[in-house]
Design a protein around this nucleic acid. Structure first.
Lengths: 146, 146
DNA sequence: TTATATCGTCAAGAAGATTGACTATCAGGG
DNA sequence: CCCTGATAGTCAATCTTCTTGACGATATAA
């Protein structure tokens, strides 16, 4: 199925942003699957960039992602059962847990970066370097300010 | 809750596009609610721009939206029970149904256009007209081609 | 007229996220 | 040292959005 715009009222920034973001996600997911990460799914993978090399506390991931702690937990549990991350108790806080990559997780993270670079390079080629940089500037301006 | 980027790996086109699209959606929803459309929710409202003044066949909406026909139907049923649209049998095809706006629906569509213009104007003001136009060009290039 | 395809519907369920209720732990003030 | 209140994580139930599967009715073409 193909989305259409033409004669209706869809040619505005909001839709264009969403559409472009969708294209990006699809390309990225395709790359990840091609690299053998069959477990890859949007929601799960959205956690990955929030885990530091040395591990990140669950509460910090919650804060960073802007989701409820329960939602984040469910995603982490899924990633855990897929062998992407593991959780250790926080030595400095008996309540806390630290989320760390497993070997498999580190590989996924590395492939994720590879996929990101590849898709980004495609977009840059499509637009030209200068226009790409201008796009990024504009997006940063109208984004959430992060 | 606030999303964060800083020292992680989130400053790339995909995330920026998604983030900017999120900001847009939130602003738009806020406008709609402010105009009294309490029924407004993202999924439901995504149908509205696909209904023509003279009505649109359900099957055409399905094709345009790129969702399953069942998903589209559920959204239409919801809109119907909120009094936004009604459905008449298609006089030219005993199988088909034509989705039309009610009075309330026409008002919502009109307010939707108003909200769109308002939010778009905000973004244009933030970027400057020239940069805004360049952004739109770039987004059209990297979008789904519609 | 008889296949075949299309249009819409009903039902069940997966995926992602939410809210509410609860336990364990921490940190600060008496 | 012991309350009090805030924080970290968990468990359970539920909501929204969308999917797949099965189906009846109508259209189209051989």
């Amino acid at each position: 199925m193909v989305k259409k715009v033409d004669d209706f009222q869809l040619d505005h920034v909001g839709w264009r942003l969403w559409d472009a973001a969708s294209v990006w996600k699809e390309k990225f997911a395709t790359e990840m699957v091609a690299m053998g990460h069959g477990w890859y799914r949007e929601a799960r993978s959205s956690i990955i960039p929030h885990i530091r090399a040395g591990g990140t506390r669950q509460a910090e991931i919650v804060e960073r992602m802007g989701l409820s702690k329960q939602a984040v937990q469910q995603l982490i549990v899924d990633l855990e059962s897929s062998g992407i991350v593991r959780r250790d108790p926080d030595p400095n806080d008996g309540r806390g847990k630290i989320v760390r990559f497993t070997e498999k997780g580190l590989a996924a993270q590395s492939d994720g970066r590879k996929a990101k670079r590849k898709v980004e390079a495609e977009v840059r080629a499509e637009l030209g370097s200068q226009e790409f940089d201008r796009l990024m500037d504009a997006l940063r301006k109208i984004g959430s300010g992060a």
